[in-house]
Design a protein around this nucleic acid. Structure first.
Ligand SMILES: [Zn+2]
Ligand SMILES: [Zn+2]
Ligand SMILES: [Zn+2]
Ligand SMILES: [Zn+2]
Lengths: 165, 165
DNA sequence: TATCGTTACGTTATAATATAACAAAATGAT
DNA sequence: ATCATTTTGTTATATTATAACGTAACGATA
């Protein structure tokens, strides 16, 4: 069992990635079973493709891999986007907004908002736990040189909350 | 002079927006003059269009307004994207990654990374100046009900910094 | 196991966002 | 006036995402 709370930068280190993959697939299965949701072959297939690395993938990258796998079929975009939609809704993957790309969740089932350290060189992504700690401090801790940070909080402003009443 | 440090939620309040517009245009002019950069008619026009409101605009929204303004010309996407590129490079506007949209900077020339509170109801955006850790507290302060937060820190991981040597 | 409502998948077309590549014009420094 | 540089204009195309609608699989129930 890889504890990503202790090694939040696992994505940036050499490690037994097979174990990552197995562990996350198992967690995904269990999570879906618990919630009585169907991790269908397609959804599982997309998740497996995404588990190939700790780099985010664009929907069309995933699509290309799907079409390379089953040389007979001609999979179309909506299939991929639907699988991504399901996986995101269940917190098995996250969207990296600044890249229009998607990445597997490092610890499925977490409550707090996901936060990422994205290396613009190797393109690997580490998912860190929000907790109380400052993310920038955490980055500094990990020796991660911050280049650009995107912080976007979406919600409803006070005025609109009144009107909605 | 509107002090957005004292009123970080100015975008969510009733206020004299003409003053916002005038003030930001003046700041933009001065900033470009200081840096010996050209705030050309096109760039200024795009900035003015964006100053219409505190809501982010897509590149094609801006394009549509350009084409409505000069009914003769047929402005094409690259023109808009180039103006946006310039304005972003100089910190006069910011990109809202989670919306593929752009918004004028609330206080041009600031050093720290921009952070936003985006209302998914009225779609107005407040730019706040706080550290990442206290942003959620700030949101709470302003009565902003957080719905979804995107925190993306891009940089170079420790390993890649070694290889780059 | 036949039926039926629901969920997931497949297919086609198209919308929305963004950039490549190259030509023409404007700028500003000799 | 000339020329290098920057900015703008133009055409075409790449990339990302969704609408709309039909088919198949599933899973509960009779
Ligand atoms: Zn791994
Ligand atoms: Zn996660
Ligand atoms: Zn205003
Ligand atoms: Zn700003």
């Amino acid at each position: 069992m890889i504890d990503k709370t202790k090694f939040p930068d696992i994505a940036f280190r050499k490690h037994d990635h097979r174990r990552c993959q197995r562990q996350l697939l198992t967690e995904a299965s269990q999570l879906c079973a618990t919630r009585k949701l169907r991790l269908t072959p397609r959804r599982r297939q997309v998740l497996e493709i995404m588990l190939a690395s700790h780099q985010p993938m664009g929907a069309y990258d995933i699509l290309a891999r799907l079409n390379r796998a089953d040389s007979a079929e001609r999979i179309a975009p909506p299939i991929v986007y639907r699988a991504l939609e399901f996986l995101m809704a269940e917190g098995l993957i996250h969207r990296i907004e600044s890249r229009n790309a998607f990445i597997t969740c490092a610890h499925p089932g977490h409550e707090s908002a996901a936060q990422f350290l994205i290396c613009r060189d190797c393109e690997r992504v580490a998912e860190v736990e929000t907790s109380a700690q400052s993310l920038l401090a955490e980055a500094d801790n990990l020796g991660f040189a911050v280049d650009h940070s995107v912080v976007e909080i979406t919600g409803v402003c006070a005025e609109c909350q009144k009107h909605a009443g």
